[in-house]
Simulated scan of single mutants.
Amino acid sequence: MTASLADIAERAGVSVKTVSGALHGGSARMSDVTRARIKQIAEELGYVTNLAARGVRQGWLPLIGVVADELITSPFATEIIRGLDGAARSAEMAVFAMNLSGGRSVASVLEEVRRFRPRAIAYAAMYHKTVSLPPELSKSVGVMINCREAGDRVTSLVPDEEEAAAEMTRYLLAAGRRRIAFINLPGILAGELRERGFRTTLAAAGLSPIAVLPAVRRAIYNDRASSSVQLHVTALMEAGERPDAILCGNDRVAMEVYSALRRVGASIPDDVAVGSFDNQIEIASRLDPPLTTMALPHRAMGRLAAGILLAEEAGGPKLRKLPFQLVERSSI
Score class of each variant (00 low, 15 high):
R148G: 02
K139I: 00
M126N: 08
R89V: 10
A174S: 14
Q58L: 13
A314S: 14
M237Q: 14
S140L: 09
A204F: 07
R178H: 13
R54I: 06
I80E: 03
L319N: 04
R242Y: 08
M126E: 04
V14M: 09
L296M: 07
R224W: 02
E112D: 07
V109R: 10
M1N: 11
W60E: 14
I180G: 08
V106R: 09
L23A: 05
A3I: 14
F116W: 14
A273Y: 09
V272P: 00
S90V: 08
Q40L: 04
L185Y: 07
V274E: 09
D85F: 03
T169L: 05
A77F: 06
K139A: 09
A305G: 03
A203M: 03
V113M: 01
N279T: 01
A87K: 04
V212Y: 05
G21L: 05
E44K: 01
V327M: 07
V216W: 04
L63M: 13
P75F: 03
A107D: 08
I121S: 01
A125D: 00
G151S: 15
E161Y: 04
R242K: 15
G55M: 06
E92V: 14
E241D: 10
S156E: 12
S108P: 09
G25M: 02
V14E: 12
R217E: 15
S331C: 00
P134R: 03
M301T: 02
P290W: 04
I41K: 01
R263L: 13
A6D: 14
A87G: 12
R252L: 00
A68F: 03
S285N: 03
M98W: 02
H232K: 07
P159C: 05
I188Q: 05
R11D: 10
